[in-house]
């Protein structure tokens, strides 16, 4: 039987109260949202805390998806199912529905949250790659107020984020730009599994040339960092199969996969190339279909 080590359980009644508890308890405490990453780690004793602060009662205040003229703001407690089912989010960023359909399974998606996924900072986690692809920024709240960091600053390494001991990720912001679309491609060994490799792409067109494009990969290295070299190569070009091929080659060269039970390094580089190509192609097709 897998059971976590003993801890004290507290239930947060407000964001400020949760931060107050974290401030008092320091690194002996951890927030739990959906719990579908943290509890398995605690059951395996890979993570041990003296205090667990349950923030599920904050779903009402942190579970929003708010569409504004220049950005979409999503509360950290928005659950996977809500992200998948939001028509507004799906219209603006189809990459979300692409990714959410292949994150775990529907029952797990009832519990898991956007904030929890990002804070887990697993290198194979799909939403981190989505947020990187969409150039998201993260709002971190502490006793002295909010600070906003980019995904590159947020995701410091495997299981490590910019969120301090007395801080909490409260919101993720996605800039909205016209004439764009996005897509997510994932290869997994079986339904609901972690990615062997995933690639996200977002493209914005100006007329018939690429105004900006971003690619984010998952499961091919310690970070889900974006690939600025691909953005630089694509910007100002007309979309074409040759261009997607070149972007794929950069993706395969720039990532750092390791051979493990999910596949060899060589196979993963092949996937990085092919999935990047497919995600870019699908993004551009979606812009053209929408116009």
């Amino acid at each position: 039987m897998q059971v976590p080590a003993p801890f004290e359980y507290e239930r947060a009644t407000s964001v400020d109260q949760a931060i107050g508890l974290l401030d008092r308890l320091g690194d002996t405490a951890r927030l739990v949202a959906g719990g579908h990453s943290l509890l398995p780690m605690m059951k395996l004793r890979l993570a041990n805390f003296e205090y667990l602060i349950d923030i599920n009662d904050l779903s009402d205040v942190l579970g929003y998806i708010t569409v504004e003229p220049t950005q979409i703001r999503i509360g950290a407690m928005a659950r996977h199912r809500e992200l998948l089912e939001s028509a507004e989010l799906g219209r603006a960023f189809p990459i979300f529905a692409d990714a959410e359909k292949v994150i775990a399974d529907p029952v797990v998606r009832n519990r898991g949250t956007l904030g929890g996924s990002l804070c887990q900072a697993d290198p194979s986690e799909d939403l981190s790659a989505v947020c990187t692809t969409l150039n998201a920024s993260c709002v971190i709240r502490g006793r002295d107020g909010d600070r906003v960091v980019t995904m590159e600053e947020f995701h410091r390494g495997p299981y490590e984020t910019a969120v301090g001991d007395a801080e909490m990720l409260t919101e993720v912001r996605f800039p909205l730009r016209p004439n764009g679309a996005s897509a997510y491609e994932k290869v997994e060994r079986r339904a609901g599994d972690w990615a062997v490799v995933s690639s996200g792409a977002a493209v914005w067109l100006d007329g018939d040339v690429i105004a900006d494009a971003r690619v984010g990969l998952a499961a091919v290295g310690p970070n889900t960092a974006g690939l600025p070299e691909i953005s630089a190569m694509l910007t100002g070009q007309r979309p074409s199969e040759e261009l997607y091929e070149q972007a794929g080659i950069i993706a395969a060269r720039s990532c750092n996969p390791v051979t493990d039970m999910r596949g060899s390094e060589e196979y993963k580089r092949h996937l990085a190339k092919e999935l990047t190509r497919r995600a870019l192609r699908r993004s551009v097709n979606r812009i053209n279909e929408g116009s």
Binding site: Y9, R11, V32, G35, H36, L39, P40, L52, D54, N56, P106, V107, V108, N110, R111
Partner: peptide
């Protein structure tokens, strides 16, 4: 809502 009860604390 369906939930996997092996991954939820009774307290929650």
């Amino acid at each position: 809502e369906p939930v996997k009860s092996c991954t939820m604390l009774a307290a929650m």
